[in-house]
């Protein structure tokens, strides 16, 4: 083996790779936001007194968690156009990531909600707050706090899953890297470099999530 490393293509393509990183972080943050919304909304519907809504949420969670992400993203990109819904690669990726992350978030957040002492709900109800207010104002924050570590690791996973969006050529790091690799055939250099970039982004994301948790979910406990 006398492989000579040549990082010239990587160095020349570095600005493009950095733009790819920004694309990845954009997909990740948008996907997370959507996942949180779906997660919280799903929990509310999951425990609604309207039975069909509950079933719908259960079916959604089962469907998403038991099918491959690649198939889900292909479905949105290639199959939905037959129903008249045509999305560009990046919106496709964001929706796929949000929907997929959301299904997992529903289960995680629901666990948090169930861990909240019933006395908290009763105190809220006894003060004349409506059910929705009790959830929003009393249950949600302690519930999110309780499950933050699980949700954070799910979101790190979501960050890494953005690379699958390269399958529909969404603008993100793996897509950009593929282009550079296709032109230069410097697979080792290119994928080695983006491996480190993903590592750094995961680390940044973890720090960001920890910051958000300290900022919005922290309060003294016994």
């Amino acid at each position: 083996m006398s492989y000579t490393f040549d990082f010239t293509p990587v160095i020349n393509g570095f600005p493009t790779l950095l733009l790819g990183c920004i694309g990845t972080l954009w997909l990740a943050l948008s996907g997370m936001t959507l996942a949180i919304v779906i997660g919280i909304g799903g929990v509310v519907l999951r425990d609604s007194h309207i039975k069909p809504l509950r079933w719908l949420v259960i079916a959604f969670v089962e469907l998403i968690r038991n099918t491959p992400f690649l198939v889900q993203i292909y479905f949105i990109f290639f199959a939905l156009p037959f129903m008249g819904i045509r999305l560009n690669p990046t919106p496709t990726a964001i929706i796929a990531l949000g929907v997929n992350g959301g299904a997992y978030a529903i289960e995680i957040i629901r666990g948090g909600v169930q861990s909240i002492n019933k006395g908290q709900l009763e105190a809220g109800r006894a003060l004349g707050l409506r059910k929705g207010q009790v959830f929003r104002l009393i249950v949600l924050k302690p519930a999110l706090r309780a499950i933050f570590p699980s949700l954070a690791s799910q979101f790190i996973l979501l960050t890494l899953t953005t690379s699958i969006a390269s399958a529909v050529a969404a603008y993100e790091l793996t897509s950009v890297a593929k282009l550079i690799e296709n032109e230069s055939f410097r697979s080792f250099e290119v994928y080695g470099t983006i491996t480190i970039m993903y590592l750094v982004m995961s680390w940044m994301m973890m720090n960001f999530l920890n910051f958000m948790s300290r900022r919005y979910l922290s309060y003294p406990v016994k």
Binding site: A123, G124, A126, L127, G128, Q133, I138, R145, Y219
Partner: peptide, 29 residues
């Protein structure tokens, strides 16, 4: 809203300050 209740386990809201515990329902309810 007319009847207050005090519980054995206090059931204060842990994520709210003492003052916020006291203003939550008057403001929202």
């Amino acid at each position: 809203r007319e009847v207050g209740m005090v519980f054995q386990q206090f059931n204060l809201f842990p994520h709210l300050t003492v003052l916020q515990n006291c203003t939550l329902a008057p403001m929202r309810s």
